[in-house]
Amino acid sequence: MTADVQTASAGAAQVQTTAAATVTTVPLRLGTRASELARTQSRTVADALTAATGVPVELVLLSTEGDRSSAAIAQMGGTGVFVAAIRRALLAGEVDLAVHSYKDLPTAPEPGLILAAVPPREDPRDALVARDGLTLGELPAGSRIGTGAPRRVAQLRALGLGLDIVPIRGNVDTRLGRVPGAGEGPGDLDAVVLARAGLSRIGRLAHITETLDPLQVLPAPAQGALAVECRTSDARTRELLGRLEDATTRACVVAERATLAALEAGCSAPVAAYAELAEGEAGPELFLRASVTALDGSDGVRGSATGPLADAAALGRALAAELLDRGAAELMAAGR
């Protein structure tokens, strides 16, 4: 596999001098997609890892099926199209760790790999970028709204605002360019909906005209979170990555993705889940919300549950079971 290498910290190696000898610390190789957002996310993790451990990290840019194709994600098989090539490189020993947008990962574990760290999460909400500074409620009926996510399509249609939802693909700046005044592009749409986290990470927050309330549009499971993987057998890298762990973020995304897995749905299904830390009678607990919405917006089921952080996975499974009892499977089947 051909890869371009960029140094994520000054110098190819950090030299540590001891009384006995001079020891060269070999850089860790971090596999990532080449998009601006992926590189930025990976550099953030690389810099944090070097700051926490003193070990230098270099980025190895890899091409994935999702990057090479212009087809809709669902047409390519949905889950995993942005991570399979990176995982192959990791298993082959071509890189030592990988950083993914957590929501892109399949829910089933990958043999030989471990999710060694979940760093603190960015704001997981969706964001609207609209012409003339408009909010969602201010856009007139018939406005053309771009999004590539079935979850967003379904929830936007369910709002009953008479919006024309247009499927789009491409990186963040390509999508922003579809809105007049938001970037370089055709400006052929009235608005686009994107993850606020991605806009934040690459410095595009100024383009947001409204951050969408989860009561209107519930985020995707694990949206805004990063997943850092390494080989299960690589004890040294596992130990180093453990210093980046944020226990609360992991509990939240474990609950959300347990819901997704129990629904047997992938990242291209119209499923939303969002967990937050709340104060319960016995101390901190998770407040989990989830929904499944018909792709045409005509119907949907939504529920919530609370429980201890230690029971995050069980909480997600229980909420999924409730949604299935109320017709979630039929809604997803209709969408397919």
Rank of each mutant, 00 (worst) to 15 (best):
T64V: 05
A149G: 02
L212E: 02
A89I: 03
D123R: 07
I86R: 13
A251V: 09
E245Q: 15
A314R: 13
S42L: 08
A89L: 03
L309E: 09
I145Q: 03
P186H: 10
T107D: 14
R302I: 11
T107I: 00
P221A: 12
G303T: 05
P167C: 08
E281K: 11
P109C: 05
D173N: 13
T64K: 04
A38S: 15
V129E: 03
R68P: 00
V193N: 07
P180S: 09
S298P: 03
R326W: 01
A255V: 03
L205A: 15
D213A: 14
A195T: 11
A13H: 13
A3Q: 08
R144W: 07
R88W: 00
A98L: 01
L218F: 02
A48M: 11
D188E: 13
M332A: 06
P119F: 03
S268F: 10
T147Y: 01
D325L: 12
P270A: 13
V292P: 01
A329W: 01
G80S: 10
T232Q: 13
Q75Y: 00
P120H: 09
G160N: 06
A269H: 04
L226N: 02
I202Q: 07
V23Q: 14
V254D: 14
T174H: 10
V179T: 04
R144V: 08
R257Q: 15
G316M: 08
V81A: 12
I145H: 05
G316I: 10
A235R: 15
T24Y: 04
L288C: 12
G266Q: 05
I208A: 12
A321T: 11
A275F: 01
D299E: 14
A74S: 12
S200M: 13
P186S: 14
L189R: 01
E239S: 14
A305S: 15
T135N: 05
A334Y: 06
G283C: 06
R43K: 05
T249H: 08
